[in-house]
Simulated assay, not measured.
Amino acid sequence: MSDYRPQAPVSVPLTGTVSRADDHALVQRLVRTLDPAHPAPDRLAAELLARFGSAGMMLSAPVGALDEVTGRGTAISSLLAVVREMALRLHRSRVRHTDVLSGQAGLEAYLQACMGHEVIEQFRVLFLDGTFRLLADELMGTGTVNHSPVYPREIMRRALHLRAERLVLAHNHPAGRPEPSGADIEMTMRIVQIGKLMGVAVHDHIIVGNGCSHSFRAMGLLG
């Protein structure tokens, strides 16, 4: 017979500024919801936050990394992956229904959720129409821990097929800080130049990693 006893509810603020204590309360509540019989949700919440830094970064983590904290014999990491997918779909819906110019913070949060905790480098492209509405968000390349192949002509071919007028490029830096490298800048400028010839503008290139992001446009690298 199980010795599980219902535990007192945890108060969690669902709006406004989120503190470290709020994150802990939210993760603790999530653990209790996903596994009501878990013997130590408070301790597991602390361990998850110690490993990943925040509730958001925890949800961005791959299942294997979550398993290392929750234990491979539990279903928590798989259930968290479902929660993550739901969160990504919410982010994607918001990005799709707003323009990039007015939703930059949401766009960067979405890209962080998509790629911030990936262990290999990914390169994705957001294809936009003339009013900065999202037409498609596509993964255009995956590679190693510090490199992903990028084929500018394939990007432009896809842009023409979608009748996109603007692009937002994005990739992650799994092994280091998200500041652009010389190779990142050179590759971006090559895409910009090819885009000019084909009537497709590169609006921004966003690099995510280590819980933060860097925008080429914000840094003045795209004029």
Results as ranks from 00 to 15, higher is better:
R94A: 12
L126K: 03
G176A: 15
P149N: 03
G106T: 06
E179F: 12
D137I: 08
E108Q: 12
S148Q: 10
H147V: 03
L135T: 05
P178G: 06
I155D: 06
H171I: 06
G182F: 13
G182T: 15
Q112N: 09
D99M: 03
R163P: 03
V150G: 07
V145R: 13
A136Q: 14
T131S: 12
M187H: 06
L162R: 08
G116C: 03
L128A: 05
G106R: 00
I185G: 08
L126M: 13
H173C: 08
V150T: 10
E138D: 08
F127M: 04
M115N: 13
G106C: 05
Y151Q: 08
R153P: 00
R153G: 04
E108N: 02
P149D: 06
V150K: 09
R163A: 07
E121D: 00
R163T: 06
R153I: 10
G176D: 15
A113G: 03
T131D: 14
V95M: 06
L111Y: 07
H171E: 03
L160P: 00
H97L: 12
A164N: 00
M156S: 04
G103I: 00
A159W: 12
D137T: 10
E118L: 10
Q112V: 06
N172R: 09
A159N: 11
S148M: 10
G141W: 11
R157V: 02
P180H: 07
A136R: 15
R177V: 14
E179M: 13
A136G: 01
T98E: 06
E154L: 11
H97P: 03
T131E: 14
H161T: 12
R96N: 04
A105S: 09
G103Y: 15
Q122Y: 11
S181L: 15
H97M: 08
V100C: 00
R157I: 01
A164F: 01
C114R: 10
L111G: 04
H161Y: 08
V145T: 12
D129I: 04
Q104T: 13
M115K: 03
P152F: 08
H147Y: 15
N146M: 04
A159E: 07
R158A: 07
F127N: 04
R124W: 04
E186A: 15
G176S: 15
M187Y: 02
D99H: 11
L128E: 04
T98M: 05
R124E: 13
G141P: 00
R153W: 09
Y151S: 00
R94I: 08
